[in-house]
Simulated scan of single mutants.
Amino acid sequence: MTWQPHITVATVVEDQGRFLLVEEEAGGRAVLNQPAGHLEANETLLQAALRETLEETGWEVELTAVTGLYLYTAPSNGVTYQRVCFAARPVRHHVERPLDDGIIGPRWLTRDELLAEKDRWRSHLVLRCIDDYLTGERFPLSLIRPA
């Protein structure tokens, strides 16, 4: 079998010191993560980030920057993920929109509230992405270039 990383996107959406997170089922338990998911065929990384955020939270967002690129190998299954994390601002909440299967719902938490839930993080990247955002890591969206 050929080793192949999985390309994923995530968004750090901040509003007045609170961050939009997703409570979801993973491995038989409820965990917290950024709105995140896999890049699908024939879409750009930016389109994937907008789609995943809407599908998992019901929130339309505006992407404002790239906050980082992360390589993570999940200890649970040995799969390696390449995560492209974006900063975004909330635009509109579609309250009636059904969310993806396995999603419990969106949660707005401060960094301290998230820190108190460390045992529920999907991975250490949840806090790492927020901390990179808070330290001012911002790269222009033009960093992501079409082929």
Rank of each mutant, 00 (worst) to 15 (best):
L114R: 09
G102C: 12
W121P: 01
L115F: 03
W121D: 02
G102K: 10
D101Y: 08
L114I: 07
P106A: 09
R107P: 02
R111D: 02
R111Q: 01
G102R: 10
E96L: 10
P106H: 02
E117K: 06
G102E: 15
R122G: 11
L109I: 06
R111I: 08
G102W: 07
P98F: 04
E96R: 10
A116H: 13
V95I: 11
T110I: 14
S123H: 04
R107A: 15
R111Y: 01
R107K: 14
W108A: 07
W108D: 02
I103D: 03
D100T: 03
D101F: 03
G105C: 15
E113N: 03
H124Q: 10
G102I: 14
H124K: 08
L109S: 06
G105L: 10
R107M: 06
E96C: 07
K118N: 02
D119P: 04
E96H: 01
E117D: 11
R97Y: 05
I104C: 07
T110M: 09
P106I: 03
L114S: 03
D101E: 13
D100G: 09
W121I: 00
R111V: 15
E117L: 15
W121H: 10
R122C: 08
E113H: 13
R122H: 14
R120M: 05
E96I: 00
L114A: 07
V95P: 04
I103L: 11
R120Q: 03
T110D: 02
V95Q: 14
I104A: 12
R111S: 06
L115M: 14
H124N: 07
R97Q: 14
V95C: 13
E117Q: 15
A116M: 12
E96P: 06
L114T: 09
D112I: 13
I104T: 14
P106K: 09
D101V: 13
L114V: 00
L99C: 00
P98M: 01
R120D: 01
E96T: 13
K118R: 13
L109D: 04
A116K: 13
G105R: 12
P98L: 13
R111E: 14
R122K: 08
H124A: 11
T110H: 00
D119A: 08
R107V: 15
R107G: 05
L115W: 04
R122F: 15
L114F: 02
R97A: 09
R120N: 08
D112P: 11
R120V: 02
D100R: 06
G102V: 11
A116I: 07
D119G: 06
L99K: 03
W121T: 04
D119R: 02
R111K: 12
L115G: 05
E117N: 05
